[in-house]
C-alpha cells in the first residue's frame, strides 16, 4: 500500500503492548484516587467500557485510559451528569447480580456483552432501572467510551495515542504543510 504514514505492523503491536502495560500499572496505582467515581463504580465502568471497545490485536478501552477520561469529565465539565452515571452503573450492577449473582466486573466477557446488549435494547428488569433509562445510559456509556478512546489524550484518555496509531493517523494529527515529514515512529513511554 502506498501509504506514507503507515506505521509498521510490528512497531505498532509493540506500542499496543507497552501502552497496555502502562495502563494496567496506572490503574492499580490509582486505587481510591478517582476524582468523581468510587473505586467500585470505576471497576464496573472499566469492565463495561472494555466490552464496548475490547482489546484484540489493538488496545482496548482500558488500555487507552477511558476510565480516567470519564472520571475527569465527571469531576469537571460534566459534573452535573454524575448522578445519572452513578444511577446507571448501580443499575448495571443490580442487573448483573440479579441475573448471575455476581458483580458485573466478575462476569465472563460473553455474559457482560449479553447483558449490555439487553441494556442497549432496554430489555432489562425495570426494578433495577427505576431512576435511569437503560438505553439512554447505554448510549452515554458508548459515547464516552468512544470519546475516551478516540479523543485527544489531553482529555485523559487515548493514552499513548493508541487509537490514532490503530487508525494510522499521523501523530500528532495536526499536520498539513508545516509538517510534511512522514509520521514519527517514536513511541513515547511513561
Amino acid at each position: 500500500m502506498d501509504d506514507p504514514y503507515a506505521v509498521g505492523r510490528r512497531v505498532f503491536l509493540e506500542t499496543g503492548v507497552v501502552a497496555a502495560a502502562a495502563a494496567a500499572v496506572g490503574c492499580r496505582g490509582s486505587e481510591g484516587r478517582f476524582r468523581a467515581l468510587t473505586d467500585d463504580e470505576a471497576r464496573t465502568l472499566a469492565a463495561a467500557s472494555d466490552r464496548i471497545i475490547p482489546r484484540d490485536e489493538d488496545p482496548g478501552a482500558n488500555d487507552a485510559g477511558v476510565i480516567s477520561f470519564v472520571d475527569r469529565q465527571l469531576a469537571t465539565r460534566q459534573r452535573d451528569d454524575l448522578p445519572e452515571w452513578r444511577a446507571g452503573l448501580a443499575a448495571l450492577e443490580s442487573s448483573a447480580r440479579r441475573r448471575h449473582g455476581k458483580a458485573f466486573a466478575d462476569l465472563p466477557a460473553d455474559a457482560q456483552t449479553a447483558l449490555l446488549q439487553d441494556v442497549e435494547r432496554g430489555a432489562v428488569e425495570s426494578d433495577d432501572w427505576r431512576s435511569v433509562a437503560p438505553a439512554a445510559f447505554f448510549a452515554r456509556l458508548r459515547d464516552y467510551t468512544m470519546m475516551g478512546f478516540y479523543g485527544d489524550p489531553r482529555h485523559g484518555g487515548n493514552k499513548e495515542r493508541v487509537s490514532w496509531k490503530m487508525l494510522h493517523i499521523p501523530d500528532p494529527p495536526i499536520r498539513g504543510r508545516l509538517h510534511e515529514a512522514p509520521s514519527p515512529r517514536t513511541t513515547r513511554k511513561g
Partner: peptide
C-alpha cells in the same frame, strides 16, 4: 456500533 465489529469498521 460497538464491540469488535466496531473496531474492524474503524480500522
Amino acid at each position: 456500533s460497538w464491540d469488535k465489529g466496531h473496531k474492524d469498521f474503524m480500522r
